[in-house]
Design a protein around this nucleic acid. Structure first.
Lengths: 242, 242
DNA sequence: ACCCAAAGTCCTATATATAGGACTAATGTG
DNA sequence: CACATTAGTCCTATATATAGGACTTTGGGT
């Protein structure tokens, strides 16, 4: 393996060695109880100094992934397999069902009247929207930051519910609300500074940016949601023959 | 803005300042021709030293995003808006159409007979598969690494075509091939070392890992594709009412 | 007990990251 | 031209990253 690229950017080498080893551990290249290659072998593989390898191993140790044992080697510890508990679904009724079964903790970040954000490419603005920005978590794990824009008339009608629970089931259960257009877009990107702080993840970490737009039969925009999910918390399963 | 989190991990500060500023520029917080905050203002905002800010600006300059002018300030340059030219679609016929219209450059990385990889959770293995691993690029831009597993009998039937063009149209056009199950999963993750080198992107960069599985009516697995796309090259649009 | 393997420690050394501060050079504007 | 603003340069200083090498300590196995 040529390591010329490995050395090219300015991220410290020990952070990169740690990342490579972490991915291998999480992908089960080594089972719990097995030993990492020795420090000398890793020095050879990555073409780095002993201190660089040891610094990387120290990071993995602090994450509970390995236990270095003098005279023996560095043993891989059992760790929780990464699960991606949240399924991003691809139909509105499924989405509402998922949301019904989801009772995350909500922390309000912002709550005010505003206009739609730029770049909403489907439908027609009704002018004023109520914006709710919140962070969701489950079992103490923060997993997304969501910014909702609800047409003001709709928000006013169910104000209390929108404030205390997830928006989509509320919307879906209102018989006066007719949804004719429902689109969703997913982008893969790097976490921005503000969201990183809310989610307690590093700047630049992989996230999924999801935008959802719901319109009525006159193409009036009723609801826009901009959600930033931790990339490692979600998966997206699709039936290509549906 | 509290910067306690900003300082917390061991990535060099100037790399992080550069990332924050880069995102702002790409998200059009400043238009081309506008000025970044002064060095003093950035020092204040991020609570870092002058040299740290200047190092960050130097990186952005090397990327052609800014032009620092002594006595004036640092002007934001026009830059190509990020486009995400590749749409990951959610139906098989669309997928085949996209692939028909796509004539990327293919670089063969691996080409051999093997078994299916672990973790294929749909369908039944037919035993032997021909594995083709390739890198795709367009206009000199590498955008994905794909690992195909084709049932050996099918591969042998269209060996030449599979070697020189995209697999799905070939598969779809064979009247003897009956596809009854077609599933796709998308995960957001960090780029691994090997793929990073193929795609010429940094280790840990956001990527989309896509697995596609096609089975016949007996649930025999005909085709598995593991694709790793650069996160910034793709988007996924869904009609939630389809 | 002895031997071997492997992590841990220590040493010297250079390069890079970060800081605070002062001074210089370049660019507009009035 | 004078003045104000802003990036660029230089200085001193500390902290961190990286390197190569040698020696010590620890844990198993025989």
């Amino acid at each position: 393996m040529s390591n010329s690229k490995f050395r090219k950017d300015r991220t410290p080498l020990y952070l990169k060695v740690a990342e490579v080893l972490r991915q291998r551990i999480l992908r089960k290249v080594w089972q719990a109880g097995e030993f990492l290659p020795t420090v000398n072998e890793l020095m050879e593989e990555f073409q780095v100094a002993r201190v660089t390898v040891r610094e990387a191993v120290k990071i993995l140790e602090s994450e509970g992934l390995v236990d270095p044992r003098r005279g023996r080697g560095t043993v891989v510890l059992a760790h929780k397999s990464p699960t991606r508990p949240l399924h991003v679904v691809t139909s509105l009724s499924e989405l509402v069902d998922v949301y019904r079964g989801d009772v995350p903790d909500l922390v309000s970040l912002e709550d005010r009247v505003t206009e739609l954000p730029e770049g909403v490419s489907t439908g027609t603005s009704v002018g004023e929207y109520h914006m709710l920005k919140r962070m969701h978590s489950r079992d103490g794990q923060r997993y997304c930051v969501i910014t909702l824009y609800l047409a003001k008339a709709i928000f006013d009608k169910h104000e209390q519910e929108f404030r205390t629970s997830l928006a989509l089931p509320v919307l879906f259960d209102d018989p006066d609300i007719d949804i004719s257009i429902a689109r969703q877009r997913l982008l893969v990107s790097k976490c921005d500074m503000e969201t990183a702080m809310h989610l307690d993840i590093p700047l630049g970490e992989p996230v999924a940016e999801v935008r959802r737009i719901l319109c009525d039969s006159n193409e009036n925009i009723l609801y826009v949601a901009d959600v930033i999910y931790r990339g490692d918390y979600i998966q997206l399963d699709m039936n290509l023959l549906a």
